[in-house]
Amino acid sequence: MALPCVGDWVRVSYHDAGAHASILDIQPRTSFLRRRRPGGNAEFQMIAANIDVAFIVQSCHFDFNVRRLERYLVMTRDGHIEPVILLTKTDLISPEALEDLLASIRHAGINARVIPISNVSGRGVETVHELIQPGKTYCLLGSSGVGKTTLVNGLIGKSDLATGVVSHTGEGRHTTTRRQLIALENGGLLIDMPGMRELGMLDVSEGLDASFSDVEAYASRCRFANCTHTREPGCAIQAAIAQGALDPAHLQSYQKLRRESEFHGMSHPEKRKKDRAFGKVVRATIKAKGRWHDD
């Protein structure tokens, strides 16, 4: 039996007058949050389960990164979790700078809901609180120091969770060291978890299709089914880029994540075959250059 993770429902058998219990089985998961296990092995690491909404937290000040945001969106949508983006520390930037960040998110084709947050003024915290419904499970995803723990304290109305010292740059120290499930007063459940340095992709085709639906829509209009979206005639994606309707960086991110997912999804013999084929191309190129210099 696989080990349970935070958010799992399990069937147990109590003993020692209820002081201890043994897990008999894990109930089927309705959703999941997972990533490729750090290291060389192409294996999943289950992070949490049975989550209804994932709050993806990014700081407006030091942490904002659209490409990382896309990775989080792929991860959540692949696990059948609804994403909501929270932009924290809005008090550290001007209203004009905030509008620029919001525009960059929309320009990247990201259509998830975005809520600006300030843990100093309390802006947006009540909006998040109103989204949390009884009987549903939510989680906070984001890098270390973006204000997740402070936000949790604001949502529970207490200072039960310790927060780190905030530097002059606005970057807080990482203080959450384990995933924990917190019961809120209104009956909602909130999972706080440490910041994840690695967000490796593994077999996330469903999440990619959902997060990059704009790219998929343009690709379906290409003249050729096997279009590489580079120089082929009738490429709808290149036409959209030329017209300013599609961000080329958004396309590059999609292609990178697709290659990463497909590579890590290969079996070991498939990877060795691919590496050998690439090695032959490199050797042939070096040899050809050597002949050209000899001439």
Rank of each mutant, 00 (worst) to 15 (best):
F263P: 02
V125E: 06
G142I: 01
S261K: 03
T149G: 00
K280F: 06
S253T: 14
D25A: 11
V282P: 00
R283K: 15
A277W: 04
L87T: 02
L155T: 02
E206P: 02
I81Q: 03
G265D: 01
R276Q: 13
T177K: 12
F32H: 07
I286E: 14
I23A: 04
L69K: 09
T228S: 11
I81W: 03
V12E: 06
D8P: 14
D8E: 12
T88R: 06
A162H: 08
E270N: 00
T175W: 12
Y14N: 04
R179W: 03
A249W: 08
K256V: 03
L69S: 06
L3A: 15
F212L: 06
T230E: 11
D214R: 14
D91E: 15
I47C: 02
D203H: 06
N153A: 01
L73H: 07
L189T: 11
D209P: 00
F44N: 02
G207Y: 02
C222Y: 12
S13H: 15
I110H: 09
F44T: 01
E185S: 15
K148F: 02
V114Y: 11
A210K: 15
T177S: 07
I110W: 13
V53D: 01
G265E: 00
C5G: 10
I182F: 09
A245N: 14
I115P: 06
R258A: 11
G124E: 02
D203S: 10
P83Y: 03
L151N: 01
K271I: 10
A48G: 08
G188W: 07
G195W: 12
S121P: 07
S267W: 01
R258G: 00
Q252S: 13
G234M: 06
S267F: 01
R178W: 07
L181W: 05
L257T: 01
R71F: 11
K273E: 11
D192Y: 08
V166G: 00
N226T: 10
G265L: 01
A245M: 13
V84M: 08
G79P: 06
G18K: 12
E216I: 13
H15K: 03
H264K: 00
G188I: 06
I286D: 08
C235W: 01
R179H: 10
G147R: 01
F278H: 11
E262L: 11
E198P: 05
A108T: 11
Q238D: 02
P4M: 08
I110L: 12
M266R: 09
T30H: 13
W292G: 05
C222H: 10
D16H: 13
D25G: 07
D295Q: 09
P233V: 00
A21Y: 12
G279N: 11
V125D: 03
W292L: 15
L151K: 03
R35F: 04
P28H: 05
T88H: 08
W9Y: 15
V84F: 06
G18S: 09
K271P: 02
I237M: 02
G147D: 00
F64V: 10
A277S: 08
G195L: 04
D295K: 10
G145Y: 07
R272T: 08
Q180C: 04
V146A: 04
G109A: 10
D275C: 00
S121Y: 03
